[in-house]
């Protein structure tokens, strides 16, 4: 069952960043890209539950801050060969209000033992090859 939430005015979302919102009993990451797009996804990375809202954006590509898993905000699909994430429908009303619509679809669950632990973007240092 779909439910629409009003998150308030767009300017509360800093350009190029994400924030976590509590919508009903779900935690949802909402992003505003530099070209003005608004996107909503599940809040935690399926890899090791990294806070996706803290990731770096490049266009509508999102990098998880913990281990550089890469996702497309529009579709939720992985851009570096890992699993996808759940996305929600998000929009901006003509008056600038951000709207997110939740559905009953499952979020992709954390898989704590999967995947590599490399962070090349943040402060982590990749171990020597």
């Amino acid at each position: 069952m779909a439910e629409r939430y009003s998150l308030g005015p767009l300017h509360l979302l800093p350009a190029g960043e994400g924030r976590n919102f509590k919508l009903g009993d779900r935690k949802v990451a909402v992003f505003r890209t530099r070209d003005g797009g608004v996107f909503a996804t599940q809040a935690s990375c399926p890899h090791r539950a990294g806070p996706l809202a803290d990731g770096l954006l490049g266009g509508h590509a999102l990098v998880c801050p913990l281990h550089d898993w890469l996702f497309d905000l529009k579709t939720g699909s992985s851009l570096n060969g890992n699993c996808n994430i759940k996305t929600y429908s998000a929009s901006v009303e003509p008056d600038g209000t951000v709207m997110v619509e939740l559905d009953d679809g499952e979020e992709v669950m954390a898989m704590p033992d999967a995947g590599t632990m490399v962070s090349d973007i943040g402060t982590g240092t990749s171990p020597p090859a």
């Binding site: 800093p14 350009a15 190029g16 960043e17 530099r34 806070p51 803290d54 990731g55 770096l56 954006l57 801050p65 973007i121 943040g122 402060t123």
Partner: peptide, 10 residues
Amino acid sequence: ERDAKFINDR
């Protein structure tokens, strides 16, 4: 522009 920075620097 804060979005250019890694989360540690925000």
